[in-house]
Design a protein around this nucleic acid. Sequence first.
DNA 1: CCTACCGATCGGTAGG
DNA 2: CCTACCGATCGGTAGG
Lengths: 196, 196
Amino acid sequence: MATVRRKNASKKDFILLRASAMFREKGFSATSMRDLAEMVGIEAASLYNHIQSKSEILQEIIFRMANDCNVHLEELESSNLSSIKKIESLIRFHVQMMISKCDDYTVMINEWMHLSEPYLTNFNIQRHQYVVKMERIVADGFQQKEMKGISPYVAVLTILSSVRGLEFWHRSSQKITPKEIEDNMVNLLISGLKKN
Amino acid sequence: MATVRRKNASKKDFILLRASAMFREKGFSATSMRDLAEMVGIEAASLYNHIQSKSEILQEIIFRMANDCNVHLEELESSNLSSIKKIESLIRFHVQMMISKCDDYTVMINEWMHLSEPYLTNFNIQRHQYVVKMERIVADGFQQKEMKGISPYVAVLTILSSVRGLEFWHRSSQKITPKEIEDNMVNLLISGLKKN
DNA sequence: CCTACCGATCGGTAGG
DNA sequence: CCTACCGATCGGTAGG
């Protein structure tokens, strides 16, 4: 019983893995269940023994990833790091996510609009709350004279967008390591935010 | 004759305008010709009196936008501004494009992968050349001791990605003007790049 | 610019 | 997990 459960779970995970790569590459709408089935190595109809619908696949990929982000941010909020250190930690976390879970992260960022209701609304609320929390950290940093008086909204947007751009790097064959990417980005963004 | 030409051209432009908005909102693949026809106010079949195919619409939107970007960069290259001023001009140009031609710019950035061959390869080459040219400006700035020794690749990626993130702002109802957005972003990125 | 229609493909189901 | 198949919808065409 336990074995069967685990087997089913791992096959579903395998489907999600392949789906994530395909959604990233071609987009959710342009990926058919027959395409996906072929990548998984079964017939399209057989997919439905593991998942309920195409939508459910997207939901699972996105909300798992969103949850990882939320957990990290909550841990960070309850820490007693300085604002600038919190922002640095956020940059490093997102860069690492983009690099280590590139497909899932990219699908969340690029394909969320194809979620169906009520998941779409749910996701939008979560994302908005996430941005608000990040803005608060930047605003705190300004009040504590750690950061310059830049618009928290622009600052947060710039940070999150910068990481998004790494999707590209991951595709290309640049001679630069993940660690270098991370450090360079932290350097650029943090020194852009710091009061000098 | 000339009137007919102009009329046809403007109707085609109108179709491209609506298509751009819909491709941005729902994505290229999830937008059907029937959806588009409804937004234009005619039957789906009638679209084909103005355009050849769904693909052609995407091509026109993307390559017009790409051309605007290339023209600006070439003008900038032949100017005698300092490297840091060139980068600033690039940031301001891209922010302005994102704000004034939001649909077209977003479609170019988000939907290019749905171009068919040989347009896809053509676009990839153009984009790569664009990035290389920008990297050269950053590298020059470093050599002339204007900028810090950050990876030109990461710098260019960060700049272009940051602008991309503004798509979001444009959707939301933030109480911040385009000019403020532009200045804040220039401030953050330029001071992140400058040698201090 | 429309009506009528084409073959292809879509997400998904029935039944074994 | 498969074969066989469903109704819906897709991009696009013929003909007027």
